[in-house]
Computed example of a mutant assay.
Amino acid sequence: MKVVVTGGTGFLGRHVVWRLAARGHTVVFTGRNAGEAATVTALAGAGVDFVQVDHGAGAARAMLSDCCREADAVVHCAALSAPWGSRQAFERSNLTAVDELLAACRERGVARLVHISSPSIYFDYTDRLQVREDSPLPQPVNEYARTKRAAEERILAARLPHALILRPRAIFGPWDNALLPRLLRLIRLGRVPLLRGGRALIDLTYVDNVVDAVEASLALSVNPAGVAPVFNISNGEPVEIGELFARIATSFGLPLEAAPRPYVLADLAARVLEAGARLAPGWEPPFTRYSLATIAFSQTLDLSRAAALLGYRPRVGIDEGMRKTSAWWRASMGQHPT
C-alpha cells in the first residue's frame, strides 16, 4: 500500500511514518522542516520519501496532488496545535491544509483518508466525563478548537468513501515536544498549581496506541450505516491531575512541589495576560485560560465506538508509557527538560 502522511516531521506524524514503513508500506511524508525530515527518514529505512510542503503556499496544492499520485490512502497529521496564535495562522494550517488535501484526493481518486482531529472541540470550561462522539458540541473555546471542528465538517461534507476522523486525547511519548515538556517545566520550576483541588480527571494517550488506531482505520473496510466515521481515542485510564504530576515526577526522577491554587484567581491572571498579548502581536502569554482549564476541569472519553468498530484496545498503559518516554529522553537528551 502507498500511504501519504502529512505532518510527518511532527510528533505523531513521524511515529505513523515509522510504523507504516516497518509494515512494508511505501510512505511519502510531508512537512516543512527538512532537518527533522532527515531524522525521520534515517530511522524509517527504505521505502520512505519526503516532500517539503508549506500548506497555504502557492505550490502546496499541486505538490500534494503529486504526492497522492497512485496513493491508496492519506493520513492527515499536519496541524497547528498551540495554546495561542493568530486566527490566520490556525486557518492556514488547519483549514487551508484540509482544502488542499481534499482537492488532491479528489484529483487522484484517493478514497481512504484518516484525519487526526482533537477532543478540544468538546471542551466548554465544565467537567465532562465519558464524552461520546455524538455528544452535542459547544461553541469553540479558541481558534484551535474552532478550526479543528471546521476541518471535520469539511471532511465529512466531502463524502470520501472511506474517510475517518480520530480524536486522540493528550498524546505523549518519545519525541513529544508539547504536552510532557510543558508539564515537566512546571515541575522543575516548582510551580505546579493544583487548581480546583487537583482532582480533575484527565485522559491521556500514549503515542503507539494512537498509531494502532491509525492502522485499524486504514484497515476498516465498511463503516456501519448511520454511524459517523468519528472515533474517540485515549488510553482509557483517567487519572486525577495531581496524581498525574506525581507520576511524571517519579518517572523522570524529579522532586514535586505542588499546592492548591484558587482557580478563579488563576483564570483572572490568564485573562489579563491574554489581553496584553492581543495588544502586543507576536508576544505569547506564558499561560492561557484554556491551558489552565485543561488541568482544572475533567474530560474523559467514551471509547466504546472505537472498541466495537476499530477493535481498538490500548496496548501501552500510562505508567509504561511514562517509563518509555523518560528512558527515551535520558538516552536522546542526556538530561531533564528545562
Score class of each variant (00 low, 15 high):
residue 157 A to G: 12
residue 231 F to Y: 09
residue 194 L to R: 10
residue 17 V to P: 01
residue 86 S to M: 12
residue 134 D to M: 04
residue 92 R to G: 08
residue 333 M to I: 08
residue 302 D to T: 11
residue 225 A to S: 15
residue 39 T to S: 15
residue 141 V to A: 10
residue 327 A to F: 05
residue 298 S to Q: 06
residue 111 A to N: 03
residue 157 A to N: 10
residue 167 R to I: 01
residue 95 L to A: 03
residue 3 V to A: 03
residue 212 D to Y: 07
residue 65 S to Q: 12
residue 234 S to L: 07
residue 57 A to M: 11
residue 327 A to N: 08
residue 325 T to G: 01
residue 93 S to I: 09
residue 42 A to L: 13
residue 303 L to I: 11
residue 224 P to L: 03
residue 45 G to R: 02
residue 252 F to W: 14
residue 276 G to P: 02
residue 175 W to T: 02
residue 116 I to L: 07
residue 326 S to A: 09
residue 61 R to L: 13
residue 24 G to V: 02
residue 183 L to W: 10
residue 265 L to W: 14
residue 122 Y to N: 01
residue 40 V to I: 06
residue 126 T to N: 11
residue 130 Q to D: 14
residue 70 E to T: 11
residue 155 I to G: 10
residue 109 G to A: 08
residue 321 G to M: 00
residue 314 P to W: 01
residue 255 P to T: 07
residue 109 G to R: 12
residue 209 N to K: 05
residue 223 N to W: 15
residue 105 C to W: 01
residue 21 A to Q: 07
residue 3 V to G: 04
residue 327 A to I: 01
residue 87 R to A: 14
residue 279 L to H: 07
residue 46 A to S: 13
residue 201 L to M: 12
residue 217 S to R: 08
residue 138 P to N: 00
residue 144 Y to C: 04
residue 30 T to Y: 07
residue 279 L to W: 07
residue 143 E to D: 10
residue 100 E to N: 04
residue 261 R to E: 12
residue 319 D to H: 10
residue 21 A to V: 02
residue 78 A to Q: 00
residue 103 A to F: 09
